[in-house]
Structures are given as structure tokens and as C-alpha cells.
Design a protein around this nucleic acid. Structure first.
Lengths: 347, 347
DNA sequence: CTCTTTTGCGCAAACGTTTGCGCTATACCC
DNA sequence: GGGTATAGCGCAAACGTTTGCGCAAAAGAG
């Protein structure tokens, strides 16, 4: 497919009357080391400029055992949080001369494992993955084979290796302190993927905060099973239309979940924040424009990606004797807007 | 990097006592065609199952002159419109056995051209690109070399080849009819990238609609220079704080632009829709939750991606004598919410 | 029992690079 | 002018597959 005769070092060698070796050396900047005359270099460059692209990276990859490619696995690229991560990863990769092979795992461990297999067979130089987070085996085996790897956002139990996450406990604690200090006692926790580390830590922070405040944990208030918008909607729908005393606040553990919650609250005709207060994980451009402006927990997306890529590059180009097994945890900040109100007797 | 001894057909051949050829034939499903005995096949499969991944796709790609990879170039993956496109493209690609090499052009023609060069040297089997749309040369040259290619969303002037876009004129006409029927005469057009085709068509629809309604086009009301949130904000800031008679409606040609506009309107303390009506391109989950709920033009994202991929697969696996040069145009729908109000004398 | 056909598999070339080594021609030294 | 050093480049092997062809053994035919 797509083969013009004028391609490859071979053709370049013929048109210049030189050998493939020489052309290769000139084009890969090894001219000096191999004493190629300035005149010959010029000849090659001229011819190379005349043609378009020249070197076949596939053949190069085979010979050099490196593809200058990093694999990126993301649970859902259309989730703006991950989209931003992906963008940053791609930029940093390109800035360092790497291309990005993208896979969307659709929050499925099986798809993710399959993606890992694929990336291995494609011989990516390294992997940065925001895992589903329920299984570590396929990731751990990469490490066992010394395959450069960094995890972002979530890290499954049993994974021992470099990773960078937000400080999820601190995040929820920030949010819970905010809610509790406004008088809230019945706080719903709209969780994401239950077994997944980020979610677990957030839920842990939720429980801990309640305990610290001397509030009993009502397990029925921890609800949800993934990060989808529909799940948030259904959870709120169900929880707020039941007979039990109505909760007065919601902590949504993801931006899509919060959107779903808002949809449900609207159809239930519950006013935010008058009747229900809401805090959402993930800061987004639309957060301040929502009705009411949404109080959010902002994760340092760029920093997450940047630190992750740094950890990866350290593995790709080892200089130091490897700095232990770094687990970076980056702070989350609370952006206070209008979606949280003090609890009043009015209800 | 990342090299375990137990990898590759070679090793598999040694452990089974067979030749590399035989192993290759079994693993690639050519067993029958080469009369490999059932027993031998079983032996290979057993050994292959014991090891993990086996075949080196790089070497395979070199030999077979196909990488089972498609290149995806996107102006900004963090823009939810493109993120959704990217997700869909990735899914479809994988469903057909292809991987996706991702590049984010950052709305820069140079970066895009560089990305194309890269993808060519990486020997992707085909390319699907949402181009910046200002230049066609680097894309057209791909076509000249018969490189399978499809454009999405925008198509630069001078490009002759398969592409699929939204019906941008129809979209703006829908929006303009809506606004004009509500009595609006001074309508701002917050445009995206001026020279880019999607934008041009949208602006064209804007002008046409005004003319049809007998309204003079005020060039000063067509403002903006890209799809960024800041640009939308600044444009509105500037336009609505100047002395001239205040426009009563805004048509934003992108979801981020609309967000910027809303930010600016809020700081200017202009009420939507009482003082300013607003319609935005791109439907998003948050649109209905904005204050006020946003009237939007919904593009058929999944369909765009799906049609584009179909056009690409037709090129990758030609069956028919090639169905001309397909240019697909998909309809846009108006979702009417609360951000448009009838013009009153109140101002 | 010999000759032909079929079965089952391996040999080796090729894909397009990179690179260690070696070869020739010129330059330098005395 | 003979010998050595150096400059400038090409040969060929190797990376890990796939595949046309060929060869040995088994099976079938007579």
C-alpha cells in the first residue's frame, strides 16, 4: 500500500551513487564518526531534501530494537479528565521524540489486558497507563520483564512500581470538611469504580472524615458503580426518591457522575444548593457556569502527566541507578463556588 | 530494553523442536494451507500458550509491509468534541484489528504536517485526520502517493478526496433562523479558526441567513480567531463593553468558545437570555445544566467517526472499483433550551 | 518391489535498516 | 620511493518475520 518508487535509503543510494551504508550514516547524523566527507554529506542531503520522507521506521525499529513509541492506555478518552491527561502525555512524548500509540480500555480490565498484549507485540518502548485498577497482574508482568511503565491516576492493589496519583484522601477530606462545616450530616458519596484505587481512597477519605466528625457511616449512602454519567443520574434518582430521610449533600467522585447527579436533581426538582449541596471531583471549564456554580476538587492534570512522563523517561534513559520505586502523590485543591450552602432548618 | 529470553518465534521453534517457518505458519493460521499436521499444531499452540506474547509485530510489519496501524491526527484532543471523535475512531479501529497512532496538532499546520511526516515514516496503513484546515498540500501529497486517507470535520481548500463533515451551513442556518424568528437582528458570530473550512461554512451560513432575512451584515460582529475558551471570552468582553449598540444574541461556533462567552457575559453582568441570547455549536452533557440551559447545535459525532472509518476501510481493503471521491455531509440538529429568548423592548 | 504421488516440514531469501570491519586510495614522513 | 597513517567509503551480517520452493519420508499404485 502507498508505495512510491522513490522511497527508502536504497533509492537514495542509487540516485546519489553512494552505498546504502553511507546514506544511512549521513541521515542519522553519524557522518562525523564515520568520516564521511563534507561533499558526500551535501550530496546526500540534497537528494534527501528533494524526496520527501525517507527512512522506514519499521525497518529501523527492527534493527535498533526501539520504536520511539510509547503506549498510552486510558479508560475513557472522552472523559475530559482523561482527555486532558492524554493530550499532555502526547505533547510531552512528542517533545522527547516519541510517538503515542493510544488505546481506550473502556473501563474494562480485559480490554486493558488485551491492549497491553498489543503494545508488547508492537514493541512500544514504554507504557503509561491509567489503569482500570481492578487487576495488577498484566501490569506487574510487564514490570517483571523490565518493560518501562508508569501508572497514572489509579494503581491496582499488588502493583509495585512507579506511579503518580492525586492525593485522593486529602481531596475527599477537603470536601467533607467543607460540607460538614456547613452543617451537613447526611452526605451521599457517589462513587466511581468500587474496586479501583482512586475510588477506594476517596471513599476511605469519606468514611474517615465522617468518623472524625463523629458521624455514623450509613453504607446506603455510598452508591454507584462506575464513572458514567448515567450511573450518577440513576443513583441520585433512586436515593432521593426513596422514603428515607433525605440526604442534604452529595460528594460526586468524578465530573461525569456530578453531571448525572445534577440531571437527576433537576428532574426531581431539588434545588442546589438550597435543598442539596454538591461537590464534585475534577475541575472543568463549565463548572463555574453550571447552575449553581459548582464547587469542585481540582486535580493537577498537567502535573500528573508531566511527573508520569518524567518517571517514564527515567526508565527509558537510565542515568542514576534508578531512584527506588517512586510513588508520587500530588495535592488536590478545593475550588469553592456556589453549590454548597449551610444547612438550614427550612427543610 | 524489556527483553526476556523467551520471546519470538525463534525461541518457540527451539522449545518445540520445530522450525521457525512451521511455527510462523501455525500461529498465523496458515497451517491448513501448508499441511501442518494436527499434532504439530497442537504442540505449537501449547508452547505458545505457555509463553506470553510471541510475535514481533515490527518484524512482521517489515516483512508484510503493513503495520495494522492507523494514524489519527486531531487539532486538540482535550476539546470534548474531538475527544469523542478520537474515542470512536479508536474503538472502530480496534474492532477491525488496527491500532491507533495519535497525534495532537495543537491547531498548528506545521505540527500537523510534521505529524504526517512521522506517520508516513512509521508506515501507518492509513490516516484519519481532523485537519487544521488551512493547508492542503501535505494531505494532498499523501493522496498523490495513494496513501489511504480520510478527513473529518474540516476539509482544507484544494483537497480532493474522501472526507466527512457536518452540514455546517445548515447548522448555522438552523441557529440563525431560530434567533431571527425570536426577533434578533444584531447577532454576534463568535467564529473559530477563520480560514478553516468548517468555520468558513458556518460563517457563510451566518451571512446567508442574515441576507435572507434582509439584515445587513455587520463585519464587526464576526469576531474571534480560534476555538479556544479564552478567545471566546475576550471577544465578548471586548464587543460588549464597547460603546456601539449592544448585540442581542450570540452564535458561538464551538463549545469552548461558548464557555468563554458565558464567562465574559457573567463578568459583564449581562443576563442570558434576558439581555443576550446564545446558541452554541456542539452538544455536551453540561449544556442542559448550564445557567441557563444552553441551546446547542448537535453534531453527529459517532456517525462522523463511523462514516470516516468506513471510507478508510474501503481504501484499505478495496473491493469495489472505488466509489468515486466521497464527500459525506451529515446533518446537524438544533437542541432548543433556555438560552434564547424573544427580543423585548426592555433593553 | 519399484515408481509415483502425497504429506509434512525445513531452507533460505527478502523486507529496509544499522554498524563492525575491511579495503583502497591518497597523504604524510623520512 | 618505500613504508605507514589516515581518510572515505562499501561489504555483509543481523534484527524477526513470511513464504516459495524443495526435499525426505510415507503412502499408494501397479
Amino acid at each position: 500500500m502507498a508505495s512510491f518508487p522513490q522511497e527508502g535509503l536504497k533509492h537514495l543510494a542509487e540516485t546519489t551513487g553512494l552505498s546504502v551504508s553511507t546514506v544511512s550514516r549521513v541521515l542519522s547524523g553519524k557522518a562525523a564518526a564515520y568520516r564521511i566527507s563534507a561533499e558526500t554529506q551535501a550530496r546526500v542531503h540534497a537528494a534527501a531534501g528533494a524526496q520527501g520522507i525517507v527512512v522506514n521506521e519499521i525497518a529501523r525499529g527492527l534493527r535498533l530494537r526501539t520504536t520511539q513509541t510509547i503506549g498510552l492506555i486510558i479508560p475513557d478518552v472522552s472523559n475530559p479528565f482523561f482527555a486532558a491527561l492524554a493530550r499532555q502525555v502526547e505533547h510531552l512524548a512528542r517533545a522527547h521524540g516519541y510517538s503515542v500509540l493510544l488505546a481506550d480500555s473502556q473501563e474494562s480490565t480485559e480490554v486493558e489486558a488485551e491492549a497491553v498484549r498489543l503494545m508488547r507485540s508492537r514493541r512500544v518502548d514504554g507504557l503509561v497507563v491509567a489503569p482500570v485498577g481492578l487487576e495488577a497482574a498484566h501490569l506487574q508482568s510487564l514490570r517483571a520483564e523490565q518493560w518501562p511503565l508508569v501508572l497514572m491516576d489509579r494503581v491496582p492493589a499488588g502493583f509495585t512500581g512507579p506511579c503518580v496519583t492525586s492525593d485522593n484522601r486529602q481531596g475527599t477530606r477537603l470536601a467533607m470538611r467543607h460540607l460538614i462545616s456547613h452543617g451537613h450530616r447526611h452526605i451521599v458519596c457517589l462513587q466511581g469504580l468500587p474496586g479501583s484505587s482512586a475510588n477506594q481512597e476517596r471513599v476511605h477519605g469519606y468514611r474517615q472524615s465522617l468518623k472524625t466528625a463523629g458521624i455514623a457511616v450509613d453504607e446506603a449512602l455510598i452508591i454507584g458503580h462506575d464513572y458514567a454519567i448515567e450511573t450518577g443520574r440513576e443513583a441520585v434518582q433512586q436515593l432521593f426518591s426513596s422514603a428515607r430521610p433525605r440526604p442534604t449533600a452529595i460528594l460526586a467522585l468524578g465530573n461525569l457522575i456530578a453531571l448525572g447527579a445534577l440531571q437527576a436533581l433537576r428532574t426531581l426538582k431539588l434545588k442546589v444548593p438550597r435543598q442539596v449541596s454538591l461537590i464534585s471531583f475534577d475541575e472543568q471549564p463549565w463548572a463555574e457556569l453550571i447552575d449553581p456554580p459548582l464547587t469542585t476538587l481540582s486535580q493537577p492534570i498537567e502535573a500528573l502527566a508531566e511527573r508520569a512522563m518524567n518517571l517514564l523517561f527515567q526508565q527509558l534513559h537510565p542515568t542514576e541507578p534508578a531512584p527506588a520505586k517512586p510513588k508520587l502523590v500530588l495535592p488536590v485543591t478545593l475550588i469553592s463556588r456556589g453549590s454548597v450552602a449551610p444547612l438550614t432548618r427550612s427543610r
